[in-house]
Design a protein around this nucleic acid. Structure first.
Lengths: 174, 174
DNA sequence: ACCAATGTAAAACGATTGCTTTACTTTACA
DNA sequence: TGTAAAGTAAAGCAATCGTTTTACATTGGT
């Protein structure tokens, strides 16, 4: 694992667990086992590092959502929550923490949410046999809802959202 | 309006718009039109101020959810989003920003989410004519989903969640 | 008229911020 | 073997953090 990957992975952990603003450079360098000089040479800035973290997370997250059915979408979220824990959506959180005023971060978030929305619409279309933007919107809401409710309601929130998704899909079919 | 109310209202605006960590004391005192001495005399600390903000917000938010039907629940959210904007749930955000390590904040968030969950269960029970914890969980997910999807999908997210809620309730009745 | 409460502005607290620099060591390859 | 790239530790940058203090002004009630 090269240094920049190590740094990105470490930063993702710390930003996710303690918050972007609350995580100082010192904590980052210590955890990643490198000097601040090396960190800045590779990352450019703290904001750019966060953007890199988000881009990498988007890649990993979207790879999990590479599925064929709506049910698999929520199954993937169950896996994600089990593996990565549930502290809310890091994308929305990092944008909120910076008030949307850090372009590198705001752009990475916008790109992710756009891709996320498109993916859900694709899966819904594939599963249903036709486009259904309204149903996709509902699935997106269930997904976001499960993600954030899971923070304080636990895993069962994802299972509940999954059940609703099945009802909606069945209803759209019939 | 007395000083502490003015301070609390100002702090809520700034924390919500720019984030808790990103909002410094100087910005707070300037916006509230008071010295830092007065701020600390009334608020105690920055974290205590945030806890006060959350408690006050809980009061205002829960007052809006004092309704009799599930549909009115989502209508109330539509109003809230229209009036207060949509930057996600300030409770979850502030806990995430502090990594859950600031007891005053974490406690205020836990208290709110507990009351929120209970309120939804109450309204569901009233509207349906009987308790239905599973349905309440689903409604909670829709509510959270609408709140967070609205950040990047806009008002329509709330309307979509409202439609799903109606379907679920009808389905539970039949 | 007085006193206690409550406010102010402004300086300073030590700690920490993101970031840069200096000086030195290790590594890899021709 | 020699050299260039890439790493390190550690000190230091000005700025800002949340917080406290100092010294003084303005109130309202007895």
């Amino acid at each position: 694992m090269d240094r920049i990957s190590k740094l990105t992975a470490t930063a993702e952990q710390l930003f996710d667990r303690h918050g972007y603003m609350a995580t100082g450079i010192d904590r980052l360098t210590e955890a990643a086992g490198m000097s601040s000089r090396t960190l800045y040479k590779h990352a450019g800035s703290k904001a750019a590092l966060m953007a890199r973290v988000l881009t990498e997370r988007d890649r990993r997250f979207m790879a999990r959502l590479d599925v064929q059915t709506v049910d698999a979408l929520f199954a993937a979220l169950e896996d994600w929550v089990r593996v990565e824990g549930c502290r809310g959506c890091l994308f929305l959180r990092s944008r909120a923490e910076t008030g949307g005023d850090t372009p590198e971060i705001a752009d990475a978030v916008a790109a992710h949410k756009d891709a996320f929305h498109r993916r859900i619409a694709e899966v819904v279309a594939k599963d249903l046999g036709q486009d259904d933007p309204a149903l996709a919107e509902q699935m997106l809401i269930l997904f976001e809802g499960a993600t954030h409710a899971a923070v304080y309601r636990g895993q069962q929130a994802v299972a509940a959202a999954r059940a609703v998704a099945a009802i909606l899909l069945e209803s759209a079919r019939g």
